[in-house]
């Protein structure tokens, strides 16, 4: 340092303290940013350890686990009816929410006049997206299960999930529609297309990758939802394969049930079930990112 005569010029500006503070601040912010990552790593680590303990030490048979239903003894307990229940739920939710969500988004972005009513509808939508999921379960319990006397069937659960997912699908679709440049719409309208022809011929095809990505992410949210299903009356101990009009269980409700059992071996079953759920989720996220990156049109 003593040789560094060039810095004489600035020697009256003492930056050591500033630099130290700067470094400390940087480290602090970095740790904060990494905190979430660390927690995620711990969470995955925990699930893997619990699963490994269950499979390797306790001897949970993965084959039995994936092919049988809930049972009083942990050795014979399995996830199959719950997996099938979850698949049914996601499938029905997709059918019930996709058309509804995309239609609403299309109306709001392409047709709705910019007036008070529209603003109110949109404000209501953001509000709906913030309603706790358990409230949707309560709505389905009051209206479908007991109001329409549907009973505690899978369809009622799917309806609850759809109500929950529709605002998410709408918001994602609106974003995708908004990303379509107006030049495209004008090009179509100037060719003598009606609004609808423009939407169908140009706007929706351009927005579709975004809409599909948003929908998959919304369904990923739905498949992990537990509270609305419990409110609707899901069977916690799913023993037999459900269909839309039968009583039902699902993966998350099964996890909830096992996690609450006093016998600790069931906790390892829960971990294994979580692993299955997370693998399915990773698949869905992967699909969403693939669609986003692969089909997104350049404009």
């Amino acid at each position: 340092m003593s040789l560094d005569t060039g810095s004489d010029l600035l020697s009256d500006v003492d930056l050591t303290w500033v630099k130290r503070k700067e470094l400390l601040f940087h480290v602090l912010l970095f740790s904060a940013a990494m905190f979430g990552v660390a927690m995620l790593a711990l969470l995955i680590f925990d699930i893997l350890i619990e699963t490994a303990y269950g499979v390797l030490i306790l001897g949970i048979d993965v084959g039995t686990f994936l092919t049988s239903g809930a049972s009083r003894t942990w050795e014979q307990a399995g996830l199959l009816p719950a997996i099938i229940g979850s698949i049914w739920l996601v499938f029905l939710t997709l059918i019930l929410s996709f058309v509804l969500g995309v239609s609403t988004a299309t109306y709001l972005e392409e047709y709705a006049p910019r007036n008070r009513t529209t603003r109110l509808i949109e404000a209501n939508l953001t509000n709906l997206a913030g309603v706790p999921s358990v409230a949707y379960g309560l709505l389905a319990l009051g209206v479908f299960v007991n109001g329409f006397r549907m009973g505690e069937i899978l369809l009622a659960g799917a309806l609850a999930l759809s109500l929950l997912v529709v605002p998410i699908v709408i918001v994602a679709s609106q974003e995708a529609l908004r990303a379509v440049p107006d030049g495209m719409r004008n090009g179509s309208l100037a060719t003598g297309a009606t609004r609808w022809q423009t939407i169908r011929g140009v706007v929706i095809p351009s927005a579709l990758p975004g809409i599909v990505t948003g929908t998959i992410l919304a369904l990923a949210r739905a498949i992990g939802e537990t509270a609305p299903l419990i409110m609707v009356g899901a069977v916690l101990e799913a023993r037999s394969t459900p269909d839309p009009t039968s009583l039902f269980g699902s993966m998350p409700t099964m996890i909830y049930y096992w996690a609450f059992r006093p016998v600790t071996e069931f906790h390892n079953l829960a971990a294994l079930a979580i692993l299955v759920l997370l693998i399915i989720l990773v698949g869905m996220y992967g699909l969403a990112f693939f669609v986003r990156n692969h089909y997104e049109t350049r404009v």
């Binding site: 030049g183 495209m184 004008n186 090009g187 011929g201 140009v202 095809p205």
Partner: peptide, 8 residues
């Protein structure tokens, strides 16, 4: 139009 706007 001013800016070419072919459809995708």
């Amino acid at each position: 139009f001013q800016k070419p706007n072919p459809f995708p």
